[in-house]
Write a protein that binds this DNA or RNA. Structure first.
Lengths: 214, 214, 214, 214
DNA sequence: TATGAATGAGCATTCATTCAT
DNA sequence: CATGAATGAATGCTCATTCAT
């Protein structure tokens, strides 16, 4: 399973091997249960080399988070065509998101579960990425509203809340899809898209809803 | 913060103190990073007493999960009046949910983050509770659809997906609300309720949405 | 298995129950592996009561050793009729010894294994009993030799060595018999008696044996 | 007494140092009372290194048993010249046995006392060695009988019992000799040899002995 | 570039023992 | 006479981290 033991590789390659091993180990065993021994062995190198290149367990974990966050945002960005209408962009973004998380379950576990579960420092690292995605979605929603000439009614705060809810749902669905055999990225995206676009209220023939007084 | 060091308490009381301390410690530091020393000290007792009453770190954690899960479901149940219409019930459930998670952030961290991140055994413990909530929401959606005479069009599988997305969004929002100062339970509930009931498509004048061909 | 939980027993009775439980536990689990909790539970009393009566784990163990040593020597003494010839006395002593050790395997384990394995203090306690038995056997051998008018040839030291060897063989056989199903006390006694009385040299038609020069 | 604290030794050497320390500690304090800290300190290394090389307390103990068992059987084998007559071989074997146990009292304590007192797994490890020795002695007795043309009278079971008694006596004498100042290996061997070869009956002018009816 | 050898510090767990009632 | 409540002090074991080569 581990990388083939080859000697004298250039540093950049070795580092990637180590990060691969680390993401896999962190993702499957969890941050604390993953030992540096495990990671070094899986990477096919000695432990001191891991320390030489990646410095410490914390730094290694941070490097994993950054690499996976970058890969995920890149995948989403690459999937979206900004010239298309907002709903289409949202669909493409979700599809790219679920596809990537399905292909890199360990990376997703690192980002969504491990990083948020082991201290503020790591969580902050993910928050940066999340903020980027939420901002992107917020923009999409605002754009869509503008296209439909509805913007005057929508306070920014409300839009932010909706984006937050949408992203939260997406994250939950990604984890759920990874854990549930037979659920494809496409299905997950379609489910969420339906939910987001049509809403449940649609079921009730557009009946409006507003919170009762406290 | 720790309990006042009072001697010779009856077992039941001490056990609750220990569970309080454990939930707080597990919730803030994480399952693995929380040491039994930390917990015992915070509970104001010696470590052996923790073991005498709660048996092991695993058992202690399980006891925390069960207590918090029971408390959360009880809170939601208590908030819902089954004789009201479905939308009203959903609102009440969400409000109770966000109120409880806001009041017990450590408990929510234990349930949503820690228990799901440290082994199938613990995760299964939470799954039971989650299933109960998803079932409740699924029922609500179906009821709402029936009230609106729309049931024939709704396959069960679709309803399940929607419920899953809704609960996932709620869970994410709860964590986000706890981490974001100034967001009240009421606001979180309203945001999600709007999202769920109206959908984003409403923003676009009811324009229907369907996935493009692959 | 443990004593029936009866309240308010006279001290002497309670003490015997505790010693019974202790001998059983020490004999089966070993001195260190036996916990005071185990013993108290098996005795059907609370731990503080054990401490009240027997003072400490060391004292409890010492009490066990003394009680079992006394019982064993008493059994051997009771089996021997001093007016009989030496060989008959030896036979009776061995038979009583193997019978007692077979009936009280835990006590024998305490005396022969546990007490000798956990520190000089306990070992010394057994040595006292052992010395008594070795002395008895030494006397028997000397008597037998005198009866056969062979005493002039036998230095005391030699006799002591022979007694030591005989007792050692008996102890080993007792343990072996307890661990080997189907070996009766009678058989063990007969085997050793044959060995002791006839010797192996007898097999070789009385051919004498003397150590070669160093 | 502990090894001089020398740094950076090759693994094989360190392992022997650890085993030396472990045998000494187990032999003197007993298996359970010997702490891994004690052993590591006596070996002049840190505890983690002991675990790195020897894995666990159980494994370390097993390694001790095996090493000492191998050393003892090797010593006995080396002392015996198979071309000599049976009595001479027995003498040499006993002499080698008592010499080795006298030179390695801690090893003998590990084999004879500790290993037999702390669980079947360890006991089984010694049983293998013991069986080898008993078999050797059984063979010797049978050979001696054949040389003396007495074999027809000797049932196998009887021979086995005699061998068992002889080995048991030897084991007890070894422990006794180690605990009794002034007793040399030579003396112990001679005593047992006399006992085994001549028997006590010889003292009584060949008077035969047979068990009285029950 | 790469590693075998080594450790300080901490953790879950257990146990003999005591106190207050 | 008897016990529920409580703890100080180990103990086996693991891990992140470093040094010498």
């Amino acid at each position: 399973m581990g990388a083939v033991k080859t000697k004298r590789m250039p540093r950049a390659v070795r580092e990637q091997q180590m990060l691969d091993a680390a993401v896999q180990t962190f993702g499957q065993r969890g941050y604390m249960a993953a030992s540096m021994d495990d990671i070094a062995e899986l990477a096919g190198v000695s432990k001191p080399l891991v320390y030489l290149y990646l410095n410490s367990k914390d730094d290694l974990f941070t490097a994993c988070i950054r690499r996976e966050a970058k890969a995920l945002t890149a995948a989403v960005r690459a999937g979206v065509h900004p010239e298309l209408p907002a709903d289409r962009q949202l669909w493409e973004g979700l599809l790219a998101f679920f596809t990537h998380t399905a292909r890199h379950p360990d990376g997703w576990s690192v980002l969504h579960l491990q990083a948020r579960t082991h201290g503020e420092t790591f969580a902050a690292e993910v928050t940066a990425m999340r903020t980027e995605i939420v901002t992107f979605v917020t923009q999409l929603i605002a754009d869509a509203a503008r296209e439909a000439h509805r913007d005057p009614d929508l306070p920014d705060k409300e839009v932010a809340g909706l984006a937050e809810a949408l992203v939260g749902a997406a994250e939950s669905l990604a984890t759920w899809a990874n854990a549930t055999p037979g659920v494809t990225a496409r299905q997950a995206a379609a489910t969420l898209m339906n939910f987001a676009w049509a809403g449940l209220g649609d079921l009730m023939a557009g009946r409006a809803w507003s919170p009762p007084p406290a």
